[in-house]
Nucleic acid binder design. Structure first.
Lengths: 332, 332
DNA sequence: TTCAGTAAAGTAAGCGATAACTATAGCGAT
DNA sequence: ATCGCTATAGTTATCGCTTACTTTACTGAA
């Protein structure tokens, strides 16, 4: 394609420089080149360029579940921030499977992405050690990995757990159940926060009130049906994320109980449709857009500097959003 | 990296062939190469390979809105289908903006994607003519463009409109309103189906019952509030997609009316949380996963054959899903 | 007049792979 | 012993760009 641009009678080099606004091209020549380029509808080949510059302007975004709108929103934030910087985002969906994740990361690396953003489903840090030795800039997001000291952007899960639980306590709940997430940082942190809040208020943590609700659209619903069989049943439920909490609402209503009067319910994540649910769902907002943008910002700095920086940890403060599912008018 | 593989005393070519299972390499040599490759943790450079083969194994997926779980689900289907074929998906989010879309497509092209899947927000076919002349394999999805005879996978929007409207009629509604979408194929087709169904049953189409509800989380809610001011107000509402219909439910309930007794409501798209909404939402299922997979399948065929095929149009049949929001027990 | 200095353009070498040939060896058949 | 195969391995030329130099033609100061 560039030889076509030589019908101006200049060398290939001149054209290359002109296109990149290189300083030692006269204004006149540059104009002629640009002009001809438009006429020919020519676009430089990114691949060839990448090959020699070692920059692909590709960023890998590794997510456990695109369907969860929390992550979709993050993806949007990331793309919005990176787009003006000339980066393109390759999203990979791991379906909460550590092995798939590992494989996808490998593929992204052979594609020579300039950086990675990962909300990991990994249990250990092997993959990340590899990234570190290969000096690939990367940022962990939403889910930190114990034992990996990497750049991180997200919310302190313990705070989320505490905030949600304290809120239920304030609403007068005393038998508070928790639909816990996977044993990753996220699930574990929220559980810990839940326990701490109970302890702080001298409420006994009853182990049968903590049930697992992991992955899948119905887990929250089913786990809650089990909870309702207990005697006494809980009077408050904290679901580790919104989809699970929404399932809980469904189960409780189906059992003929009222939300929030009989059982108050709160989730986490503030998915955009929370407001439209059967009972508008109280939740802990994690500012997913902000997380996405902040992460993108951090990664872009990492990618653009050569000196390896000290890993940074950026925490976004969680925010309680009270809606109908937990608001008991009289009590408090 | 490859020179490192020459400590086996073989030529670079031999290694290259061995890695690709080329036929004229002895079993023994191949094993030695693979062995060494593992030891060195070597991965072939995709970029360099692409440069000479002219294949990137990259597919661009252009979507108007990732947050809409209908598209997120499609994205998942596409990725799931393409992943085992070795293709990587680059998702781009156009936020329903034709210009952004155009720009993103350009970028994807300079990245030399092997093919494109587009749910377009475009009003005319210019961009697609360009794709055709440049012989880029592409498939239009969900939204066809009038005047562009391209490969297409989606649902016949007119059928959706008719199916939804007929259902409301069967439920006894006689004053049926429609929250219409944008003037693209999708919105227009559903509107047309709606009108046809009314005509077929001899119900007069009242123009004040058709209001626009485009983009944004609250449009359905607000448009419905306007509808409720009419005298007489509608007794049935067909929202062109689920988020809009969910907003309608909210507005109706807020006005102190009952769903479906006073006003029956139906959407389209069958988003995964439909079941958890304030009133479980009736909808027209468009099998988003199937759309995604079918599209991916079609595109992969396009990419792998040289002969330009006659454009194909694949229609997925829509399916009525009745939930509480439109089901009137007594009548029908 | 001469020479260093600068602006503008050009040359050569490769980035890491592959395609398309060419070369070599071993082997049986004539 | 010679020819021609087949099976393996190696050569060479690019792919479309950029990096790092080198060249050329002026300019103005000494």
């Amino acid at each position: 394609m560039k030889d076509i641009a030589e019908d101006l009678g200049v060398s290939l080099m001149t054209v290359s420089k002109a296109l990149r606004n290189h300083s030692d091209i006269s204004h006149k020549t540059r104009e002629r080149v640009l002009q001809r380029m438009r006429e020919l509808n020519y676009q430089p080949d990114w691949i060839a360029r990448s090959m020699v510059t070692r920059k692909t302007y590709l960023v890998g975004l590794v997510l456990p579940d695109l369907m969860h709108s929390f992550f979709a929103e993050i993806a949007k934030g990331v793309a919005r921030k990176l787009d003006p910087l000339g980066y393109q985002v390759v999203i990979s969906n791991t379906e909460e499977d550590g092995e798939v994740e590992q494989r996808h990361i490998d593929v992204l690396l052979t594609r020579k992405v300039d950086g990675l953003i990962i909300a990991s489903a990994q249990r250990d840090g092997k993959v990340f050690d590899m990234l570190a030795t290969r000096k690939i800039p990367y940022v962990l997001m939403d889910r930190s990995i114990t034992g990996v000291d990497a750049n991180f952007v997200g919310v302190k899960d313990e705070e989320i757990g505490a905030l949600a639980t304290e809120h239920l306590i304030k609403q007068g709940c005393r038998r508070i159940a928790h639909l816990r997430g996977p044993a990753l940082a996220t699930g574990a942190g929220r559980l810990k926060g839940y326990r701490k809040a109970l302890a702080k208020h001298g409420i006994e943590a009853q182990s049968s009130y903590v049930v697992s609700a992991q992955y899948g659209d119905n887990t929250g619903y089913e786990a809650t049906r089990e909870l309702l069989k207990l005697n006494p049943p809980p009077d408050g439920i904290f679901g580790y994320n919104d989809p699970v909490a929404a399932g809980a609402v469904k189960a409780v209503l189906e059992a003929g109980l009222r939300v929030p009067e009989d059982i108050a319910i709160i989730g986490a994540g503030n998915v955009h449709y929370s407001d439209l649910l059967r009972v508008p769902l109280s939740t802990i907002d994690q500012s997913s857009t902000v997380i996405g943008e902040t992460t993108a910002q951090l990664l872009s700095e990492l990618m653009e500097t050569k000196i390896p920086l000290e890993p940074r940890h950026i925490f976004i403060p969680p925010r309680l959003v009270v809606r109908e599912s937990s608001e008991r008018k009289k009590q408090g």
